[in-house]
Design a protein around this nucleic acid. Structure first.
Lengths: 350, 350
DNA sequence: ATGAAAGCGCTAACAA
DNA sequence: TTGTTAGCGCTTTCAT
């Protein structure tokens, strides 16, 4: 292991000044062709590569050509797809991407933002956790651009990319109502997450629009893992008056619920074969399930691309007022959301 | 937008020298308690944060506390899960992670490694593309540690984490043979990828062990996208003598094939309901399919964790000879791999 | 316990 | 066209 060569080394090897090497390496125009050749030869022989860290220190605008991506969980397909889209936009512009998962913990988010800023990221794309985000103001004041994605950040007025969560949930639940369901369960993630609140609000609004009162037994929040959802569906389906339809508020929960229903069906529990289901977020193989899964589909790649474009516009100097972009979702009708309630599932007569 | 405060600013505000601020910020022991208090007050008031980039420049060992993760595609659940595991190990040690997808293109990989090294990463975890990786030697000579994961790098002797691809494929195909299949199709990704070669070798070895000759019609390489797999399965099932079993060599292909089979079944094509299938890589909802999907399952999180541990050991100074860790896979038997060939699918009698 | 000087690898600004 | 000087924000080394 040898010491990494510096410009000084290249300059000595090529018999020119350090400054000339700098010019050649940076591709500046006013250098004699023969000099360029000499320097490039030395660069090749020594395996020299410019130190971007040092360059960044001296350079006027202190632009590091790096952005930070702070999201909930990189292992979640939704965020992974979004991350890939962000990464592609970054590469197009010669930017590198630092990435980190917060697990929806505010403290982890703060630490991560702190570390990213210490490494001089030019901008941040953040999936904000629940809680106040005023701490980001200081970062923005010192020049770091910020874009929020999937959720707005509390207490912060910045560019934000979200989808029409509440409206989409309203449409999904309305579709269940249209097929004759009145006992519709809501199975959701932690309720302090903004998207969950919105989707739940859409659920309630749909029920209210038909004059149906919400029933606490049919509402479960805080399902973090697939197994939580699995347990929850067994629980609601075991109620004296079980729901005839389910609305699941993200992909993980949907997956857990499908597994739970599969287990009940196999155990021969009556009625579980015909319970209707609409999930938020599309999932792989949804159309191969029995019945095929109806979902509210959002486009994670488009969300990532949009956020990245907003961020790079800011980095390029855009000073216009913060924008809020709401992308549209669509209900993908495949079958599970169009099942009608069967007699044995109906609520007991008065 | 204000200029970011420096140590000099803090020193002026606290009425001490720059050096004292440096000591306080770095948590050095020999500073008077009152001085610490003064400095910390100034730090808080100015919102000062140490510039890790500058620090890194002067610091003796030039350790950036950053690693680079170079993988095939971050949107692929397999790599996303691996990435999350790497990220967790990095955070535990106070390291940041730069990430990038190569799309299996050597040039993109070279550019990315180059950019990561220019940003002074202490180490790289690389899913190497096909092609010679001797270019990594220069990086390693100048101190960057490298660990390969999922595949070995051609021409490079470094720590590598893989799974028992060939043996696993052999076992999977043998299981199909044990259930009476003789016409088994192989549906694979680009054949220049090492894992694909290994899995194909396992397939061939299993056939050979029963004296079954390989049949070119039943072998399809180069399926990059889900749609390729979809098309390919329609094609093989449309052969005059279609296969009675399929071996799919990664998660994407498996998904595409399941969709293709679903389409055929719906179209009422005879025999497609009973075609056996074993896929490499587990997929979500596999047990909810009809029939439930038998797969070769590997543990992407364990792979990522293992690779990260190897890398950080190297960064910590481990100089022992390169290690090659082979993690084990297991066949998860769920049903689709245990179907027996039915009469109408059998090859025509001579 | 604190400070002054030097310099990490590079570029900005000026000079030749 | 090329070179010289200064200095980015910090840590190292040495002095006090």
């Amino acid at each position: 292991m040898t010491r990494r060569p510096t410009m000084r080394d290249v300059a000595n090897a090529a018999g020119v000044s350090l400054m000339t090497v700098s010019r050649v390496v940076s591709g500046e125009p006013r250098v004699a062709p023969e000099t360029i050749a000499k320097v490039e030869k030395a660069v090749r022989e020594l395996g020299y590569q410019r130190d971007d860290i040092a360059r960044n220190l001296r350079t006027k605008d202190r632009t590091s050509a790096t952005i930070g991506l702070v999201l909930d969980d990189l292992a979640n397909p939704f965020f992974a797809t979004m991350a890939r889209a962000v990464e592609d936009e970054a590469r197009r512009r010669g930017y590198l991407v630092l990435v980190g998962s917060t697990n929806d913990e505010l403290e982890r988010e703060r630490d991560m933002v702190s570390a990213f800023c210490a490494h001089h990221v030019d901008g941040l794309i953040v999936v904000p956790t629940a809680g106040s985000h005023t701490f980001l103001r200081a970062r923005m004041k010192s020049g770091t651009k910020v874009v929020c994605v999937d959720r707005p950040a509390k207490g912060l007025d910045v560019d934000t990319v979200t989808v029409d969560n509440q409206e989409a949930a309203f449409r999904a639940v309305t579709q269940l109502l249209d097929h004759g369901h009145t006992r519709i369960a809501f199975l959701g993630d932690q309720h302090d997450i903004w998207t969950q609140q919105e989707r739940f609000a859409g659920y309630l609004r749909a029920l209210a629009s038909r004059g149906i009162a919400k029933e606490p037994d049919l509402i479960r929040h805080g399902l973090r893992a697939k197994t939580d959802a699995h347990t929850a569906v067994l629980s609601v389906m075991g109620l004296p008056a079980p729901p005839t339809a389910l609305f699941t508020s993200n992909d993980l929960i949907t997956t857990g619920v499908v597994e739970g229903l599969g287990q009940l069906r196999q155990a021969g529990q009556p009625g579980t074969g015909s319970v209707a289901l609409i999930g938020f977020d599309d999932v792989a193989l949804a159309d191969q399930l029995q019945p095929p899964l109806t979902v509210v589909s959002q486009d994670p790649a488009a969300i990532g691309t949009t956020a990245a474009n907003l961020l790079f516009a800011r980095i390029a100097g855009d000073e216009s007022p913060p924008r809020s972009v709401v992308l549209l979702t669509r209900v993908v009708t495949r079958g599970s959301g169009e099942l009608r309630p069967v007699a044995e599932d109906a609520a007991p007569r008065p």
